[in-house]
Simulated assay, not measured.
Amino acid sequence: MGLIRWMSVAVVVTSLVLAALVFSSTWSELGNRIGAWITLAVFVLAWFTLGIRAFSNKTIAFSYIALLAVLLGVGVAFLPTMATLQSVAYPLVWVIAERTRNAIIGNVAVALAVGIGFVADSGTSPEALLSNGTIVALSLAFSLALGLWITQISTLSNQRHDLVLELHSTRDELAAISRDAGISSERERLAREIHDTIAQDLTGLVLVAQRAKRELDNNHPAAAAEQLELIEDSARAALAEARALVTASAPVGLTGDGITSALTRLAERYSRETHLTVTVDAEPLPTIARETEVVVLRCAQEALANVRKHASATRATITVSTDDSGLSITVADDGVGFDPNITHTGFGLEGMSERLALVNGRLDVASSAAGTTVRATIPKEVLA
């Protein structure tokens, strides 16, 4: 609507100025001046009846451009001053024509009509043809150059607009992908935490409850009471881990006195629950980051859980050491072993590998009929 309004202003103002010029051209015959005024009136009327509607109708656009060429030819035939209408006619053709080719054809048609008008007014003498031809050619060339330049700018602007829209769309898609990736990562983290804590505690509860039942069946109330006490301790530990998970706080095993103490408590608890002898061999460790302590503790928990569920072992040892390359924690047992090359459906070893990958660590597993050794290595640069 803004373009139509400004073009309407241009048509009216140009027509009024030309009408005043025609009125002041007393050297011309009255009939020519009247013809020029009528041409201007038809020019204005044609714009408000056809020109405004030409933007949305191809047939009307073609008819209006043809009428525009005829009006300019007739107007120039009455008075050469009417050639000034080219300043409005050429832009009108450019904005109305749907394609660049149509705009060029329309401009050429207007130029030819103006040339015919000059011939009708000035004759075909060489001087007149040269003078008028130069004016028409220069006007047409300037119109085509300006029109093509503006068209190119408009095309580039539209392309940039499309690129901006595409960038916005891509940004929204990336935001959605990032959000989904964050949700997936958080789900994986929660799955690892639940598997390494609550699931292991519940597994221990089941085993201790079964043992307590056997003690009751064998009429050993004292032993059953001991197992019930273990059940209570395990349930409290599972509840504490669940609360820590909900509040996103540190694992309950890490109480601030270091990873060695946490591993010692873990070994004592597993020994009580499984009657498996678990020992800790840890050299004095430097201060390490809480996130790294969590990884070390979870790896030890998962390795011991695997020993309890699969190894049929009688002894397990947790060894923690550091060197120039970093920290390593090893859990070794004297169980029946397994084949590491066989694909397993459990979450344990895979979860340990994923957890270690978060700190650029590595998991190595060696197993034979004499037992299994699980070694987790964390590089030195992520310890502190």
Rank of each mutant, 00 (worst) to 15 (best):
M1S: 12
R5T: 08
W6S: 15
V12M: 13
V12Q: 01
V13D: 05
S25W: 00
G31M: 09
R33Y: 00
T39F: 03
F43M: 12
G51H: 00
R53N: 13
S56N: 14
S56P: 06
K58N: 15
T59Q: 06
T59G: 14
T59S: 12
I60Y: 05
L67I: 09
G73D: 01
G75W: 00
V76R: 00
F78Q: 00
F78S: 02
T81P: 01
M82C: 01
T84W: 04
L85S: 00
L85F: 09
L85M: 15
A89T: 10
Y90W: 09
P91A: 03
I96D: 04
N102T: 13
V108H: 08
A109M: 10
G115W: 01
G115C: 05
G117L: 04
A120R: 06
E127C: 10
L129G: 03
L130S: 13
S131H: 12
G133L: 06
T134D: 05
I135S: 05
A141S: 12
L144I: 14
L148T: 01
I150Y: 11
Q152R: 10
Q159F: 07
R160Y: 14
H161M: 14
D162F: 15
L163R: 12
V164G: 10
L165I: 10
E166R: 15
L167M: 09
S169R: 15
R171Q: 11
R171Y: 02
A175M: 11
A175E: 10
A175K: 11
S178G: 13
A181Q: 15
E188S: 12
A191F: 12
I194P: 06
H195D: 13
D196I: 02
D196L: 00
D201R: 04
L207S: 08
A209D: 06
R211N: 13
K213D: 15
L216W: 10
L216R: 03
N219M: 08
A222L: 14
E226I: 07
L228H: 01
L228W: 05
E229H: 06
E229A: 15
E232P: 11
E232T: 14
D233P: 06
A237G: 07
A240Y: 12
V246I: 15
G253V: 07
T264H: 12
S271P: 02
T274P: 00
T277R: 13
V278I: 09
D281H: 09
E283G: 07
L285C: 05
P286L: 03
T287V: 07
I288W: 05
I288T: 04
E291S: 15
E291C: 08
V294A: 04
L297D: 02
R298G: 02
L304P: 03
A311W: 01
R315M: 11
R315Y: 10
I318G: 04
T319N: 13
S328M: 02
T330I: 01
T330G: 01
D333V: 11
V336F: 08
D339Y: 11
D339E: 03
P340F: 01
T345W: 04
F347G: 00
F347S: 08
G348E: 05
L349D: 02
E350S: 15
G351L: 07
M352L: 13
S353I: 10
R355K: 06
L356D: 05
V359G: 04
R362L: 07
L363T: 01
L363Q: 04
D364V: 14
V365D: 00
A366G: 15
S367Y: 03
S367E: 05
S368G: 14
A369Q: 13
G371E: 03
T377S: 14
T377W: 00
I378F: 03
